[in-house]
Each structure stands twice: as C-alpha cells, then as structure tokens.
Simulated scan of single mutants.
Amino acid sequence: MTEPLILKPTLHEKIWGGTALRDVYGLDIPSETTGEAWVISGHPNGVVSVINGKYAGKSVAQLWHDEPQLFANKDVERPFPLLVKILDAHQDLSVQVHPDDQYAKAHAGELGKTESWYILAAKPGATIYYGHTATDKAAFDQAVDEGDWDHLLQKVPVKAGDFFYVPSGTLHALGEGVLTLETQQSSDVTYRVYDFDRVDAKTGQKRDLHLADAKNVTSVPFVPEKPVQIVSNVGDLTMTNLVSAPYFNVVKWEIAGNATLEAVAPYTLATVVDGELDLIVDGVTYHLNKAASFILPNDVQTWQLDGEATLLTTTPGPQSL
C-alpha cells in the first residue's frame, strides 16, 4: 500500500521569536520566544520524523538514505536537499545573507541557501528588509563598515499572500509582525550583517556578526527577481505557481471542494497553512488540520483532496534532483 509521509515538526527558540506558532497554528512551542517550526527537514539541526504508517518514527534524513526509492534518489551520499519552515518574526530578524553552494561548501561544509518567503500574515504596516542600495562593492563595503543602515537597507511593505524569491547573495530580513512560510535549500549557514545592537537575554551579549563573509557573498548591485505567477485549475483546486527555480518549485494549492491530482515530480512536499482537508491516498483518508505537513513520495502517483484549505507545496528543481 502506498501512503503519504505525515511529519512532526521541530520547534526552535529564537531571540526574535514569539507565540504565533502556538496561537495561530496550535503547535506545542517550548517557550514564549519560539521563532521557527521546521516542518519538513532532513537537516541535522532540525530532525523531522514521520508519525504515520510503516515508516513511523523514521526521520526524513533516514528515509532519504535508507529508502531512496521513495524520492527517486540516485545519490544517497548527498543530504536531503530541501527544507520548509514556518517563521514567527515577533521582532525584526537580523539582517543577513546566505552563500551559494560553492562558498558554503568551502567555508561551512554545507549546501548554499537560496530561499523563498510566502507571507502568511502581517500586522498593519509590517515590512521586510529585501536588498540594498549600493551600486558597487566598494560602496557596499563602506556602508557596512560605517553602519549606514538607514541608507543601505531597502524596506518593503508586506501583506498576507505576498511572495518573495530570495536567491543566495540577497541581503534580507523578516520584519516585526510577519508570519512566513519559508522554502529553502537544506542549509543552516547564515552570515549576520546587522542585529540592531540588541543583547541576548540569556547570554547578556550581542550576537556575533559575520561581516567579512557577508561582504564576500552579497550580490552587488541588488537586482530583485520577480517570478511570473501562473494560475491553473484541476477540479475544485486552484494552483498558483509562485516560482520555478533551480533548487525548488513552489506552488500554492487552494482547494474548495475536491480534486484528483497526479504526480509531476519525484516527490512533493506540502504544508496546510489554512483550513483543513482530507487527503486520500490508495483508498485511505488522512484528515489534515492547519500546520500539518507531509511528503507525497515517489510511489504515490495519484491522490485526492477534499475540503477547504490552502497548502504551500514544493517540488525539487533541477539542481536538487
């Protein structure tokens, strides 16, 4: 019998975190400063395991290596390539940048980190930091050295439903009051550029900055990528293709009724971000509430959806296969 892999998230406390992951998504947060739920992950810093069926108790990383047929994985030595998180920016995150694969491998032994943000909710007036104003590297380095953040950083207003593609090399940060689903390469390499001079309540110290690495990897000038969104329908399902990129493809599913779908990739990752629905695979019904995340592995070639819900789904791009 084929079946989906329904997952249990791991929760991470952050200096900038809050309680929205509990208040909005019903997750069992460890403290009042919980910033991240890693809902689909094979990364060792956030082990996510299956809670149903024959693979119950197995982590995504274990299955990637031990059951490669589930992902049509032809190289068990490489890590599971994708990671999906829900982030609660109760305060501004640090302004940061991530390296590409080549730099990350040489300096951190990891994948690089290209990511994307789907804004789930945003308080009135909320913003993100997205890119910078420097026209050449000398100007960028000078602004960083002088701490001229007001002139260097670009702020963009955001609302629920907005989508941003954030390739490696992009200077960025979520702003206070933003709840986001992040799809990314499976990497935990971050170079912190500016942290608003705040002090960690637990350590009494400011957090480390990584200015040399940040200068090395930040793209100058900043040229935002704005993917064209394509909408299609299957039954009572509306699918909005948010981005088709080298490492991942992100598609929003909005179901209001029922639909039957067929696989278009070796595997599909999905998170219910609103509402609830039934997922029917091989004649078995799985009821999924908000925040539920699952993987449709390679042996699931067709499935049905029934309910009223919004899901964010991810399939691997060509550089992740």
Rank of each mutant, 00 (worst) to 15 (best):
D145G: 09
K159Q: 15
W149Q: 02
S187E: 03
D136Y: 00
E146A: 15
V158E: 14
G161P: 10
G161E: 11
L179E: 11
Q154H: 03
P167W: 09
D145P: 07
L171W: 01
Q185S: 00
L179C: 10
P167C: 10
Y130H: 12
V158H: 12
L153V: 10
E146I: 06
Y130P: 07
S168W: 12
K137T: 02
L152T: 03
Y130N: 05
T183I: 11
W149G: 05
G175T: 07
V156E: 07
Q185N: 00
P157C: 13
S186I: 00
Q142L: 13
P167H: 09
T135S: 13
L174P: 02
V178F: 07
V178Y: 07
T180L: 10
Q184S: 04
V158M: 14
D141P: 03
G147P: 06
A173P: 02
L171S: 05
T170L: 09
E176C: 05
D145M: 09
G147N: 06
L174T: 02
A138C: 02
P167I: 10
A134C: 07
G161W: 13
S168G: 13
A138G: 02
L179G: 13
L174G: 03
Y165L: 14
Q154V: 14
S168F: 14
D136V: 05
G161C: 11
G175P: 04
L153C: 01
T135R: 08
G177S: 10
G147V: 07
L153H: 03
D141H: 05
Q184H: 03
T133P: 10
G131E: 08
G131N: 07
A173E: 05
D145S: 14
V156Q: 05
T133Y: 07
F140I: 04
V144A: 12
Q184C: 07
G169P: 11
Y130E: 08
P167F: 08
V166T: 12
Q142K: 13
Y165T: 08
E146Q: 15
F163K: 12
D141S: 11
A173Q: 04
G161F: 11
G177C: 06
A138V: 11
A173F: 04
